[in-house]
Amino acid sequence: MAPNVTHDEVEEEPRGLPKLVAPQADSYRFHVSYFTVLLFLYWHVGALYGLYLCFTSARWHTIFYAAIMTELSTLGTFCGAHRLWSHKSYKAKLPLEIILVILQTLGGQNSVYTWVRDHRMHHRYSDTDGDPHNATRGFFYSHIGHAFVHKHPEVKRRGKDIDMSDILNNPVLAFQRRYALPIFILIGYIIPTTIPLYFWKESFNIAFHANILRFVFSLNYTCLINSAAHMFGNRPYDKKVMATENLSVMLVTLGEGSHNYHHVFPWDYRAAELGSWLNFSKTFIDFFAWMGWAYDLKIVDQKSVTDRVKRTGDETYFEM
């Protein structure tokens, strides 16, 4: 069910384009997108108000519901946009694809097309000017600041060379991309807000702001993978890769903080050497593999991992 894959089977670097180097701090003057800044400010203020309501007046049903919706939306990102569509680390049948695209839409992190394009660039040009959330520009930029400015010219130029034919040829993803905004408004706002109103008579004010809270919470703890997991932690698999093994991010995201491993072996559907108890996305995929909806799960054999650790690791592997 989960075939082993060797390093030679995956092309990591683009052909015909030189590798980029980390930028100088003043190499480019970014231009602020004030609309995006105001939108994110509104979302975060609304989320703080939603958090206040959760402690003062929200029904426990609403709090539990918001927590479940938060986890479901991140599964759409981690298992769908990331492991399935960005890295093709497994295959999914149509029912699972539909479930994943709905959950990814719930998360509100752009369409799958945009997410995959940016993530493929992140791996191909990691922590250089061609990386949409280049961590060498600091924690805030890699976490969320990159969304506040117009894209670096190198990101725009290199993005044209990313092969997106598999996404464009997928009818489910093509439909989502074509109707991204109305679908997000429906799945990300209207339905999540209406359910508490209808089923347990929650007030609109509380239901709406609890939904904003779960969206902002999901967004920020997903972004920790781009920021904290590129700055804090050890590098047992490859010390020259900026991505790290970050235990705090692993705990917060239920398994997504094994980022040094993931950057070294991006095609492994587990994205870590963690067991199912600390890798909820793996458990989710394994469940659908058991159902027959997920198949051709790719993993890296232990010998390849051990050999890479010995060759390029920072000698912290056995201390984990």
Rank of each mutant, 00 (worst) to 15 (best):
residue 197 L to M: 05
residue 184 F to L: 01
residue 86 S to E: 10
residue 24 Q to R: 05
residue 142 S to T: 03
residue 148 F to K: 07
residue 21 V to G: 14
residue 19 K to S: 15
residue 226 N to A: 03
residue 56 T to D: 14
residue 116 V to T: 06
residue 120 R to H: 09
residue 104 Q to T: 04
residue 262 H to K: 01
residue 176 Q to E: 15
residue 307 D to L: 05
residue 154 E to A: 06
residue 82 H to D: 00
residue 215 F to V: 12
residue 113 Y to K: 13
residue 75 L to F: 04
residue 220 N to M: 13
residue 272 A to E: 06
residue 211 N to P: 07
residue 300 V to R: 03
residue 77 T to N: 01
residue 283 T to K: 12
residue 198 Y to L: 10
residue 11 E to V: 05
residue 86 S to C: 13
residue 108 G to A: 01
residue 231 M to C: 06
residue 13 E to F: 05
residue 229 A to Q: 04
residue 278 L to W: 08
residue 130 G to P: 00
residue 243 A to T: 00
residue 62 T to V: 12
residue 293 W to C: 13
residue 230 H to V: 04
residue 32 V to W: 11
residue 49 Y to T: 12
residue 191 I to F: 01
residue 301 D to H: 06
residue 16 G to H: 03
residue 200 W to R: 02
residue 36 T to F: 06
residue 115 W to A: 03
residue 12 E to P: 03
residue 266 P to K: 00
residue 190 I to V: 09
residue 56 T to E: 15
residue 5 V to L: 09
residue 236 P to I: 03
residue 285 I to A: 02
residue 292 G to Y: 12
residue 195 I to D: 07
residue 8 D to P: 02
residue 302 Q to C: 09
residue 96 L to S: 04
residue 94 L to Q: 13
residue 140 F to M: 13
residue 245 E to N: 14
residue 129 D to P: 02
residue 220 N to Y: 14
residue 191 I to Y: 01
residue 64 F to S: 09
residue 51 L to D: 04
residue 310 K to S: 08
residue 177 R to H: 13
residue 57 S to G: 14
residue 117 R to K: 12
residue 145 G to K: 03
residue 195 I to A: 04
residue 255 G to A: 00
residue 247 L to P: 08
residue 104 Q to Y: 03
residue 4 N to Y: 13
residue 163 D to R: 06
residue 125 Y to F: 11
residue 140 F to G: 15
residue 79 C to P: 12
residue 75 L to D: 07
residue 152 H to R: 10
residue 98 I to P: 01
residue 9 E to P: 08
residue 279 N to E: 07
residue 150 H to Y: 12
residue 105 T to Q: 00
residue 281 S to M: 09
residue 235 R to H: 06
residue 10 V to L: 14
residue 147 A to Y: 11
residue 24 Q to T: 08
residue 242 M to F: 07
residue 42 Y to T: 07
residue 178 R to I: 11
residue 316 T to M: 01
residue 33 S to A: 11
residue 246 N to C: 12
residue 276 S to R: 05
residue 142 S to W: 11
residue 92 A to R: 02
residue 25 A to S: 11
residue 286 D to T: 03
residue 41 L to H: 01
residue 162 I to N: 05
residue 53 L to Q: 14
residue 92 A to E: 05
residue 279 N to A: 10
residue 264 V to I: 12
residue 36 T to M: 14
residue 15 R to K: 07
residue 160 K to N: 14
residue 194 T to N: 12
residue 103 L to W: 00
residue 184 F to C: 00
residue 79 C to Q: 14
residue 232 F to R: 10
residue 230 H to D: 06
residue 285 I to V: 10
residue 9 E to I: 07
residue 172 V to T: 04
residue 65 Y to W: 06
residue 57 S to T: 11
residue 291 M to Y: 13
residue 284 F to S: 04
residue 307 D to Q: 11
residue 278 L to A: 09
residue 200 W to H: 02
residue 14 P to S: 08
residue 25 A to W: 07
residue 143 H to C: 09
residue 30 F to L: 15
residue 270 R to G: 03
residue 52 Y to R: 08
residue 148 F to T: 02
residue 44 H to S: 02
residue 99 I to W: 02
residue 291 M to L: 15
residue 138 G to L: 13
residue 313 G to E: 05
residue 99 I to F: 09
residue 3 P to F: 15
residue 63 I to A: 08
residue 211 N to V: 12
residue 276 S to W: 05
residue 38 L to M: 15
residue 12 E to N: 10
residue 248 S to G: 11
residue 278 L to F: 08
residue 110 N to W: 02
